[in-house]
Simulated scan of single mutants.
Amino acid sequence: MTYLTLNLLAAVPTTPVWSPSVALIMITANLFALVVARYGIQVKGVGPSLPVELPGLFAGFGLPELLAVTSFGHVLGAGLILGLAQAGLL
Rank of each mutant, 00 (worst) to 15 (best):
V52N: 12
T2Y: 10
P20C: 01
L57S: 01
S19F: 14
I25V: 13
V17K: 15
F72C: 10
V43L: 02
S21N: 08
L84W: 01
A10Y: 13
P48L: 14
I41H: 09
A78K: 06
P48Y: 14
E65C: 08
T2C: 13
A37V: 04
G73Q: 00
L34E: 07
L9A: 11
A37D: 06
V75S: 03
T28E: 12
G62Q: 09
G56W: 02
K44P: 08
R38H: 08
L34V: 01
W18C: 06
L31D: 07
L6N: 15
Q86H: 11
A87H: 12
G40P: 05
P64W: 02
G60L: 10
W18Q: 02
A85F: 10
G62P: 00
G47N: 03
Y39R: 14
G40C: 06
L9H: 02
N30E: 00
A23M: 11
V69Y: 14
Y3R: 15
G47C: 07
V75Q: 08
G47H: 10
N7W: 14
Q86D: 14
I81M: 03
G60C: 10
Q86P: 06
S71Q: 07
S71W: 08
G60A: 09
G60N: 05
S21P: 02
V35E: 05
A29S: 14
G83W: 13
G60H: 08
V69H: 10
S19N: 09
T5L: 12
P55S: 14
L24K: 07
S21H: 09
A33D: 00
L6M: 15
Y3W: 10
G83K: 10
W18R: 09
A33T: 11
G79E: 12
L24I: 07
V69P: 10
M1F: 13
L66Q: 00
G77K: 03
G62M: 04
G40A: 08
L90Q: 08
A29H: 06
T28S: 15
E53R: 13
T70K: 02
L6D: 15
I25H: 05
I25N: 01
T2R: 13
L8E: 15
A23N: 05
E65T: 11
G79R: 15
P13H: 01
G77F: 10
L8W: 12
W18N: 05
A37L: 08
V36P: 04
I81F: 02
S19C: 14
T14H: 13
A37E: 00
H74K: 14
M26W: 15
T15C: 07
G40K: 08
A87S: 04
V75T: 08
V52P: 06
R38N: 05
T14V: 12
A78N: 06
F61Y: 02
P20K: 10
L31N: 00
V12K: 07
L84C: 04
V75M: 11
L54P: 01
L24N: 04
G47T: 03
R38W: 01
L89S: 02
A59L: 06
S49Y: 09
T28H: 06
P13A: 03
V52H: 13
P55D: 12
N30K: 09
G47S: 03
